[in-house]
Every structure is written in structure tokens, then in C-alpha cells.
Simulated assay, not measured.
Amino acid sequence: MSNTPLKIATILFTSFIPIVIYAQDKVVDYNLIAPLEKIQNSPYQKIHLLDSRINTENFGIIQTGAFNTKAKLIPKVPLSEQLQKILDGMSDTKENGELLLQIRKLAHAELTKVTSEHGFFDFKANLYRKDGETYYKIAEIDTNHFTKGMDVTKKLMRNSSEIITDFIKNNLNNKPVDTLKFTDAEIKDYYTTERERLKLYSANKLIDGAYKDYNQLKGLTPYISEVYIKNDNLSKGFFAKDQNGNEVKLKFKDAYAIVYKGTPYILTDYGQYQLTKENNEFFFTGKIKVQPSASAMTNSTLMFGLVGALITSGGSASDENKYKIDYSDGSFIQIEK
């Protein structure tokens, strides 16, 4: 792969060092906006917050001013206090129930194009009813929001606030989704608890075959059971027979992953890469086609600085990096360059 994007990013990084240094201390406030509509009766009087994100320092990186200076989005009033105020205003009549909002992703990011700005928001959360020392899941959300315009900052934050507050308001009168009970410790270690329920992580042996998407892989339900290689040459890729008996080479569009002789491989636009398991997590080292998202751009800025953020936001091929599979949705989390 050409290293031109890296060269461009390096030039930009060098050119904007004064701005980056300034931006490291620049902070923009984030405030939730109360919903216009109320509900007749709220079963809950209190709401607690558990921030289970990898990066809890900020709520994303946005652009400010005429030069689109990068700034961290950090609320002056803690989000837990804002949520309680929002809940207080949702209904004039309240019972004494308690809620817990567990945030798993909450990130904003902005990207400047030639004629417009693009805003991204990722939000993933669980909502629980607290009953003494026991918790019951009421609802969960995993969503991405895209905003486009000449200046998207205010619109992006207004839309993200609406997504968060509507998630709470629309589920206030919902019953738990199942009878599963969680302790405080289990919720704090939710990733381990949830991950170990998946066959992909709990099975002693993986089932051979091609998996169309991550949902099939995590349940170990391949849609093609017979996959093979030719002349013992793994570098040439994997093959299968179509419904007419014709040989087909499996590509990224055909399968998310392949298990061959018990060994799992991830497929990307650039080839297949073996998955390795470490501490019950799956990793691979390879190249992917990076698409902009709020979480990716925010985490790249956190881990790899401006250069990482610029490469991530480009939507082009990455260099060969190490990635972890996000057990919840199968996305790739870059952990090393």
C-alpha cells in the first residue's frame, strides 16, 4: 500500500502543531436538553449512571472556530446530575423506583469535507431497573447518527441529546426484557458476563464453515459448512461450492469470517487474517478499510494523536495494525499500530 495518506497526515500534523497544542486544553461544554413532551406518571424518582466506556475523559472531539480547531467535549455539570434533572422534569407524578443507565459508547466526532462538515455520534447503553441490590435490564440501544451541514456542531449535540433523553423517556414504563438478574459486580463487569454467554467465546471447539456476518459467528451457525483451500496454500484464500456446484472463492462480500480445521480467520477487503485468542478476546493483525465513526476517530485521537485521527477519518485502507474484535457487534477496535 502507498504511504501517501501517512505522508499527508504527517505534513498536516507538522503544519498544525500550534493548533494541536492549543486544542489539547480547549474544552467545549456538553448539555442535555430536556424533552418537550412529558409522560403522565414516572415509576422512577432516581437515576444512577455507570460509565463503562474505554475512554471516560470526554464525550468526543469536535471542531470550533473559523479554523476548525479540535476541542474535547466535556460537560461542566456531570452527566449524572444532568440525567437526574432530566428525569425530574419528565413527569410531575413520580414513584420511588430507581434506574441505572450504563453507558458503553458515547462519542461525538466531526470531519470537514470540501463543501460541508460531517458530524458523527455513537451511542450504546443499557437501562436497568434497580430493585434493592438486584438489577433487571429494561432496554438497550446501539445506534449511530450522522449529521451533515455547513456547521454541524450545535445540530450534532442537539440530536445526540435527543437520542439519549428519548431512550430514557420512551422506556420508563417498560417492563424488564427478561428475568435475568444482575448484581452490581456483574454489571460493572458486564463485558465478561455478556461475552461468556456467546458460543463463540464459550465453546471448546469452533464449528468449521463460512459465516456471513458476526451474528452467525457469535452463535457458531455457518451458512456454508464445507470450506476448503487448494493445494494446501492458505495464501490463495478459501473456496466453496455454490448452489450449482461451481467453485467460488470466498471474498469479504461473501463472509465476515471463516473457520477452517478449527482455526478462525477474519476476512477484510485485503485478505484473510488468522484470529488468535488471548484472555478470551479475539485479535488479528492485518489491513482493513477504515470508515469514519465517532468512536473510531475519538479513540484514534486518544491513542495515536492527530495523525491517527486523520488516517481514521479518511475512509481508506489502513496500514497493517493489530485489532480486537468487539464481542458485542463484531467491529474492529484498533489497539496497536
Rank of each mutant, 00 (worst) to 15 (best):
M1E: 06
T4H: 10
A9G: 08
V20Y: 13
A23F: 01
Q24C: 07
Q24T: 14
D29K: 00
D29W: 05
A34S: 11
A34R: 10
E37K: 13
Q40V: 13
N41A: 12
P43M: 09
Q45L: 13
I47N: 05
I54V: 14
N58R: 13
G60S: 06
P78Q: 02
P78L: 07
L79A: 01
K85C: 06
G89F: 10
M90A: 04
S91C: 11
K94A: 07
K94G: 06
K105A: 01
K105H: 03
A109S: 05
E110P: 02
T115N: 15
H118S: 15
H118W: 10
F120D: 02
F123L: 07
K124D: 01
N126F: 04
G132V: 12
E133A: 14
Y136F: 11
K137Y: 00
I138L: 12
E140R: 08
D142R: 04
H145G: 08
F146C: 07
G149E: 13
D151N: 15
V152W: 02
T153H: 11
T153A: 14
K154A: 07
K155P: 00
M157R: 06
R158N: 15
I164W: 01
T165G: 01
D166M: 13
I168L: 01
I168W: 03
K169A: 04
N173I: 09
D178K: 10
T179W: 09
F182D: 04
T183F: 10
D184C: 06
E186F: 03
E186C: 06
I187W: 05
K188Y: 07
D189H: 15
E194V: 11
E196T: 13
N204Y: 11
N204E: 15
L206M: 04
Y211Q: 01
K212C: 05
D213Y: 05
N215R: 09
L220V: 02
V227W: 02
G237K: 01
F239E: 07
A240M: 00
D242F: 06
G245V: 03
N246A: 14
K251C: 09
K261E: 14
T263G: 05
L267C: 06
D269L: 00
G271Q: 00
Q272G: 08
Q272I: 05
Q274D: 06
E281D: 14
F284G: 01
T301S: 14
A309C: 09
T312M: 15
G314Y: 08
G315F: 06
S318D: 03
N321K: 06
K322I: 05
Y323T: 07
D326A: 12
I333Y: 02
I335T: 09
K337A: 11
